[in-house]
Amino acid sequence: MIPATFDYIRAGSVEEAVAALTEHGDEAKLLAGGHSLLPLMKLRLASPEVLIDLGRVDALRGVCELDDGRLSIGAMTAHQDVIDNDLVRQHCGVLADVTRQVGDAQVRHRGTIGGALAHGDAASDLPAALLALDGTVVVQGPSGQREIAAADLFVDYLATSISDDEVITEVRVPKFDGSWGWNYQKFSRVAQAWAIVGSLGLVKRSNGNVEEARVGLTHMGTVPLRATAVEQALAGAAIDGIADAAEHAAEGTSAPTDLNATSEFREHLARVLTKRALTAAAG
């Protein structure tokens, strides 16, 4: 399978990429790792007239610590480099652990954190993780930079609040040190596949109780979701309240029915996986 023809622009900087996006409008698409976009182009489900390759923009790779204590991860950092990064491992191990479950080794060598979030697929693992971590993305457009909270980023099926002329430059996540535990339960049919349902549980413990709990759900709607009813039920509760709280995991979701699962089965999975994830996170 061969993509339709397109003009190829290799951006040397974010400014060049923004200028090319501004010039070519909605005929153009950014190319990061290409592991969502190229398969779509080969199937001719996408046929952009212009591809703007971010591969040479080295400033978009790597991880640093911000003055406010959060971590900043360059949008073009490959999944494997997020997993291997010392700052991420030390301060946001949850992000490394979720990223380790994305695709397979070859996919993790090419796919990028920025591409995965910009693609905005509710079935992929990182959008729900960013939502549960209360992370943000920084985008740059013709009129400068803005920071978008994960809660405002994912607006509909494969749709984000990033404009056509904006480039994600950074992904920002708070540190999850000390008393936080986490676990990501990804249920899929074969090893490398997308989640039929995924549940990321984070638990902050204090004196044997749950001080705060977070739950991010993958593939339970057109956008990634937080299981807010579970989070509320657990705030300040005893750890043995997890099983009861997890019964609320499917509330407020709109799980799709497809060849892999009915929406009822997905709701069941959300409850079971959330219980397992939170139990492991609190353990």
Binding site: L31, L38, Q80, A105, Q106, V107, H109, R110
Partner: peptide, 9 residues
Amino acid sequence: RSVKSCTVL
């Protein structure tokens, strides 16, 4: 690094 060359231009 290993990559799938059908998914790289």
